[in-house]
Design a protein around this nucleic acid. Structure first.
Lengths: 216, 216
DNA sequence: CCCGAACCTGAACGGCGAGTCAAACGCGGC
DNA sequence: GCCGCGTTTGACTCGCCGTTCAGGTTCGGG
């Protein structure tokens, strides 16, 4: 009721929220060009609007960039949550989380590289307090996703009791982060399949369950 | 014989290699300000020279930055090699490598953050083929350091046979990378001591030896 | 003592890109 | 039909910074 959509069928580019459209475009441009090479004009072109409009919706380029990075990460998190909710088994949830984390494994998700944006977030968070604050939230959410799966698996009896679940979140998260970087950089030493296999191995070792032998 | 040093005692700031001086200064500035915020003038000031001189020794800012990043990493690698050579025991070598990798653990080494430069390298390597090439070298060298320790430990009988040593280099390297990022970002969730402990635990688990209980 | 080469300076140039602004647009209400 | 407001435009400003350059300094060798 807030806005009728009846007439907007004729106005193709005015969606409900122009802001969001800009954020999505910005995320895409950052992914393509890199944060440092991203100009306001690039984002404007990706939206099909003028440069002036970008700064009509965002008070400065810097703020827009920070918002775009967190926006993209939110999108990833939403996809992840949706996927996890589909699956009651903790082991399959863990598997799904790992699959979604491997750069370039599932073409339908995560354009090319969710991770390229993570690296940009890291760099920026090192100096920009604004971004550091955001990073803290995103980072905790990411590790908590893992820890929650561990806790859930222990409730269902799929996983044994063992180290602190939050610690496991940190450790498994670290392995995934580190491997993702290797895959991203892609010198052929670590393929997506390698990452998938190693992540499963290491996390099963750390959590303390055994992978079924049928991994061929 | 290429250059006499007899008279240079009176020329205080003309060391043997001005180029190297600039590289060191550049690395420091990048560490402080971040790659994106580093201006040629910052580097010149850090050296106490004019901006013109910087481009007298380096054909462009971009090339200088790439060289500075690899230079800094070389310095780290040299320190690491020196430390490892001191110690014949593979377990102690591994321990030392981990210690040197923890951001902020050993004040005497690695200014504040060797790792801040790594993150900059990653970002740049994602787009700049020049940097990607360099990164490949640095990255392989880093993982090989770990794999070599594993191999050495197996020769001396300290470590059991097990997974491929190069794979372990990748896996342990990934854990260290991932944890280092967490420590770097520093939200208090992962302290340097945490990283130290976890790195030891995980690598002993992966390699397959047991840490002595005296870890208090 | 002079010359040339290497080293160094800092002012000047030029382009680029963030942010501004006055004007236009279009749409819903009166 | 007209008004007014939210939206959009694109030309303009302005400061910044990489790079160039003409000249200065130092130093060693002849």
């Amino acid at each position: 009721m807030a806005k009728e959509r009846a007439k907007t069928s004729k106005a193709p580019r005015i969606t409900k929220d122009r802001r969001q459209e800009i954020l999505a475009a910005a995320a895409q441009v950052i992914t393509d060009r890199g944060l440092a090479e991203t100009r306001i004009q690039d984002i404007a072109e990706a939206c099909g609007v003028s440069t002036g409009l970008i700064l009509y919706y965002f008070e400065s380029k810097d703020r827009l960039l920070v918002e775009a990075l967190t926006y993209a990460n939110d999108q990833f998190y939403l996809r992840l949550s949706r996927e996890l909710r589909k699956n009651p088994s903790a082991r399959e949830q863990l598997d799904r989380l790992i699959e979604l984390s491997v750069p370039g494994l599932l073409p339908e998700f995560s354009f090319l590289d969710e991770w390229a944006l993570w690296v940009e977030i890291w760099v920026r968070a090192l100096r920009d307090p604004e971004m550091a604050k955001e990073h803290e939230v995103l980072n905790r959410r990411w590790r908590r996703s893992i820890a929650d799966i561990v806790r859930h698996g222990r409730e269902t009896g799929e996983f044994p009791q063992g180290r602190d679940a939050d610690d496991l979140g940190i450790q498994i998260g670290a392995v995934i982060d580190g491997l993702a970087i290797q895959v991203l950089m892609d010198h052929g030493d670590v393929s997506p399949e390698d990452m998938l296999r190693v992540s499963r191995e290491v996390s099963s070792t750390l959590i303390g369950f055994s992978l079924e032998p049928a991994s061929a």
